[in-house]
Structures are given as structure tokens and as C-alpha cells.
Design a protein around this nucleic acid. Structure first.
Length: 487
RNA sequence: GGCGCCAUAGCCAAGUGGUAAGGCAAGGGUCUGCAAAACCCUCAUUCCCCGGUUCGAAUCCGGGUGGCGCCUCCA
């Protein structure tokens, strides 16, 4: 188990570092999850997919990973959204948790070991705030509690900000009772109609950052191995989380901070405030979920990724190629009895190359490059074009390479479905989306099969054209006709 | 203004000191009754520009130019 070979880029140091678990063989991972006031957009989805693969790969590498991804279900935006729908804030949040879970399942995101909610972590949050007050780094002010940044010298070590500069630009929002502009709220006094809980400072609710500190400590530990989120969380969210946790718990909060790149639309970061947002739910209605996943994975997680119809179409075409190959291979394998014996070359070589890529800060695009060679080889073998002449050797080699694909699948969350099921589901979706006449297609297919049996090539070609006019492209294989939606 | 990221072929995208992965598109070929699919071949003497370090740089350093992000809610 070459686990010591995994290297990860750490935002704090700005470098790739060898992964050094707190407890050998185990890892505690905390990923900042969604604030559930609406449907998530595909930018959020990209980040969650990136960390999904991080967790998958680390498990693939043999680590016992404790994976926690929270729901922020108490927040200003939720309160505001609830005012519009007439639901209570917690009801609205609960509804969007369910919506998120449906989307996450479609995208094949692993279910975290724990998905804590702020509303279920209030006692721990209060305890942490009390601790910060007791240590003199936080103070109460008219029912609010603030973290006093000037009392924590290490502040800004993650985002590497200049405190003087920050102060110059900082403003105090109306109604806030801060001693200094940079101070941020740990606890907010309740306003009428807002969700609130009893606390030593009266009724109130947590500030934005404290919940993650409390949930991470409660469900992962006071010191965690890996913390993930989008780049935009570096400041202020993670900076504040870091300060609170370390000031409160008196120990290091997190060893490796990982941050994912943005999804861009029309050259700008996709964000709700800019309005250039595509909901994951809507994208999932237009493109195959696994193809969307593949699209996310086609660029390194720290790099920006441009969203576009062409990229999505390319990704879906690629998925079709992968699954067509696997279908063909599986059919051949089912029909052949390879038995025991030698194989050609070293099928595990691609596995080693794949791992080398992923070990290097989760270089998934590099790993996908390795897969290309693997699939080409699989196609050669399945089509009988391989240089391997001995049929038994070829069959065993094909089985071994197919085994490699199966081995890597869980690390990426790709190619896990039955090829026939994937291909049929996609075709059905396309037939439906384009309003194709399935009955007419099937009828022509039957006619054409008869014509082909009779070797009536002209008629066969005519029917092929007729099918194409209906939107179906037919191909002839040793196993008979196969067709796909074209265009 | 402060902090940070990025710039690789028509497009997408790896590579971060040893002589440019992979995908899409394009052209040629094999296969096929003809197709489709698949496979094979071709496709960047060169990595935004200018200097520097080095035996050697897309990779390191300095300076430009261009794009983006955070600094206010944001994955």
C-alpha cells in the first residue's frame, strides 16, 4: 500500500506535501457543505464532486476515512428565503436538504459518514463560544458575541492577508456592536421571527463560521487531517473557522487545507450573486449525470473549469465510448472461457500509472489519460485486432484489463453501472427528449433485419436512411443491428 | 490598492529542471456488401512576451502583457 506516496497541495503552505495522517491508516475529512436555502448550482456540484473523488481515492488507497460534510441550516439567507415562501426557516432548510440529497445521489456522490446540521449542534456551538469568551478572545455585547481578532496573533495565516489592509477596508454593518471592525460574530442575538436557542447571552443563533468549527470538532476531532471547500471560502470563512477552533481548543485545527477551483460561466465565476447560475437540478435534466461527473473530473480540481454545452456534449460522447467498449468487452468475456494462464504484457501497469497520477494531488485528468490507452487496448482485444494472436491469452488479457477498469471505478465514481443499462437509459432519455417515434423506429429496424437476411442491400440501405431521418443511426454488428440516437 | 491563481496545438487538457500525456476536431488508412463503430497513422522543433540562472527550462528567478479570483454573501 503505497499510501505514503500521496501528496496533497496545502493552501496554508502553498505546496504539495506528503500526506501524514494523525493516526496511521486513518483520516478525518471535513468538507464544507451547502447552505440549504435553495437548490445547489453546478459550481457547488463541481466542488462536491472534487472532494467526493478525494475521499474515494483515499479509501481506494486503503485509508480508513471518516468523511463529514455538513449542512448549514441556520443562516441569514435561509431566514430571508423563508420569509418569501412562508415556511419556517428550519422547514425550508429541511426541504432543501432533501433536494440536495436527491441531486447528490444522481451525481453519485458518496454519502458522508455524517452530515451534521447546525440546528443539531447548538450545545457544542455554545460550549465553544463560552470557551472563547473564557479565554478572552471573544466578548459579549448586547446579546451578540464577537471574536476579537486583535487577540489572536495568528489571524490571517491561512489567507495571508495584511491585517492593516483589511482594517482599512472593513465596515461595521448597522446594528453590530463590535469593538473593532475586523471582529466577527460567533453568536447573534435573536430577532423576532428568527430561529433561536437559549444561551448564556440570551436567545440567539450561531454566527456564520462557528458552526463548522463545532461540527468538525464534534464529528471528526479537534484536529482534523483534511478540510475542503471552494476557493471562495478561504477568506473569511475558513480563516475564521481556523481562528475560532485553535483559539478555543488550544490545538491545531487542521493539517491540510484543500480548496477547489471555480466553475466559470461566460468567463466569470458562477455565483448566485452574479446571477450566472445553472442549477444542478436543471443540468441533470439535460445531460447524463455520469457525463456531468466526467466533465467535472476532466480538469484538475484546483483549476478553473469553463462550463459550456459543447464540453458537456463531449463528455457525454466520451461516456458513450467508454460504456460501448465495456458492453462489447463484457459480451466477449461472457462468451469466452479464458481459464487460467499467462496474459499479454502487464495489465497492472496502467493501474500503477493511474495511481501515480492520482497520488500527485489527485491528478484525475492525468489518470483519465491513462484510461484512454487502456480502453483502446480493450477495444483492440474485443475486436480481434490485437497483436496477441493466441485466443486464450487474448481473452485472459482482456479479462485482466477489464478487471483494472473495475478496480479503478470506485476511485472515480465512474463506470460503475452496467454498460447495457447505462446505454439504454441514455438512449431512452434521448428518444424522449427529442420526441422520436420509438414504435416507428422499431418497425423499420425489424423490416431492415429481414431485408438483410435476404441480402437485399439496396432495401437495407434505404431503410437505414429512413431510420436516420427518424433520428436513429443504425450499425450492423456480428450480433445484429444496434442503434443510437444521432445528432 | 492588498493577497492569490492562471496563460501549453483549431478547441479542451496533463506535464513544474532532462528534451511536449490524453481527448475533441481535421486528414489518410484498415475493417465493412456499403456504412457506423472500433483500431492504426498524421496533426505544437515548441509551451503569452523579454531578459536571467543552468550542461540543459514549458517547468526556477526578474520584468512585462493578458485573463481570473478573494478582500462583502458565495463551492
Amino acid at each position: 500500500m503505497g499510501v505514503e506516496s500521496v501528496r496533497i497541495f496545502n493552501t496554508v503552505t502553498g505546496q504539495k506535501e506528503p500526506l501524514a495522517p494523525l493516526v496511521p491508516g486513518q483520516l478525518g475529512v471535513y468538507v464544507c457543505g451547502p447552505t440549504v436555502y435553495s437548490y445547489v448550482h453546478i459550481g457547488n456540484a463541481r466542488t462536491f464532486t472534487s472532494f467526493d473523488v478525494v475521499v474515494r481515492y483515499l479509501r481506494y488507497r486503503g485509508f480508513q476515512v471518516r468523511y463529514v460534510r455538513n449542512y448549514t441550516d441556520v443562516d441569514d439567507k435561509i431566514i430571508n428565503a423563508a420569509k418569501e415562501t412562508g415556511e419556517s426557516a428550519l422547514e425550508l432548510a429541511a426541504r432543501f436538504v432533501r433536494e440536495f440529497e436527491a441531486d447528490a445521489k444522481a451525481l453519485r456522490l458518496l454519502a458522508p459518514d455524517v452530515s451534521p446540521k447546525v440546528s443539531e449542534t447548538i450545545p457544542e456551538i455554545i460550549a465553544l463560544v463560552e470557551q472563547l469568551v473564557a479565554k478572552g478572545v471573544a466578548y459579549e455585547s448586547q446579546g451578540d458575541v464577537y471574536f476579537q481578532v486583535s487577540r489572536w496573533p495568528e489571524y490571517a495565516k491561512l489567507s495571508k492577508r495584511n491585517l492593516e489592509e483589511l482594517r482599512a477596508g472593513e465596515r461595521v454593518a448597522p446594528g453590530e456592536q463590535k469593538r473593532e471592525p475586523l471582529d466577527f460574530a460567533l453568536w447573534k442575538a435573536a430577532k423576532p421571527g428568527e430561529p433561536s436557542w437559549d444561551s448564556p447571552w440570551g436567545k440567539g443563533r450561531p454566527g456564520w463560521h462557528i458552526e463548522c468549527s463545532a461540527m468538525a470538532a464534534k464529528h471528526v476531532g479537534k484536529t482534523i487531517d483534511l478540510h475542503g471547500g471552494g476557493r471562495d471560502l478561504i477568506f473569511p470563512h475558513h480563516e475564521n473557522e481556523l481562528a475560532q477552533s485553535e483559539a478555543g481548543n488550544g490545538c491545531r485545527f487542521c493539517n491540510v487545507w484543500m480548496h477547489g477551483g471555480f466553475l466559470d460561466l461566460d468567463g466569470a465565476k458562477m455565483s448566485k450573486s452574479l446571477g450566472n447560475v445553472v442549477r444542478l437540478r436543471d443540468a441533470l435534466g439535460k445531460v447524463d449525470a455520469e457525463a456531468l461527473r466526467y466533465f467535472f473530473l476532466s480538469t484538475h480540481y484546483r483549476s478553473p473549469l469553463a462550463f459550456g454545452d459543447k464540453s458537456l456534449a463531449d463528455a457525454e460522447g466520451r461516456m458513450e465510448y467508454f460504456y460501448e467498449t465495456l458492453r462489447k468487452v463484457d459480451e466477449k468475456l461472457a462468451a469466452s472461457k479464458a481459464g487460467e494462464g499467462p496474459v499479454d504484457g502487464d495489465p497492472r501497469r496502467s493501474l500503477t500509472e493511474f495511481e501515480a497520477a492520482l497520488d500527485d494531488d489527485f491528478n484525475v485528468p492525468g489518470g483519465l489519460g491513462v484510461l484512454s490507452g487502456l480502453f483502446a487496448e480493450l477495444n483492440e482485444l474485443a475486436d480481434g485486432k490485437s497483436k496477441v494472436k493466441d485466443k486464450a491469452v487474448a481473452a485472459r488479457t482482456m479479462a485482466a484489463l477489464r478487471g483494472v477498469v473495475s478496480t479503478l471505478s470506485p476511485a472515480l465514481g465512474l463506470f460503475e453501472e452496467s454498460p447495457t443499462a447505462w446505454l439504454e437509459r441514455r438512449r431512452d432519455r434521448l428518444v424522449k427528449d427529442r420526441g422520436l417515434d420509438r414504435a416507428a423506429i422499431d418497425a423499420l429496424l425489424a423490416e431492415r433485419a429481414a431485408a438483410r437476411t435476404a441480402k437485399q442491400w439496396a432495401e437495407s440501405d434505404r431503410l437505414r436512411d429512413a431510420l436516420k431521418a427518424l433520428g436513429a443511426e443504425v450499425k450492423d454488428t456480428p450480433a445484429g443491428q444496434q442503434w443510437r440516437v444521432v445528432g
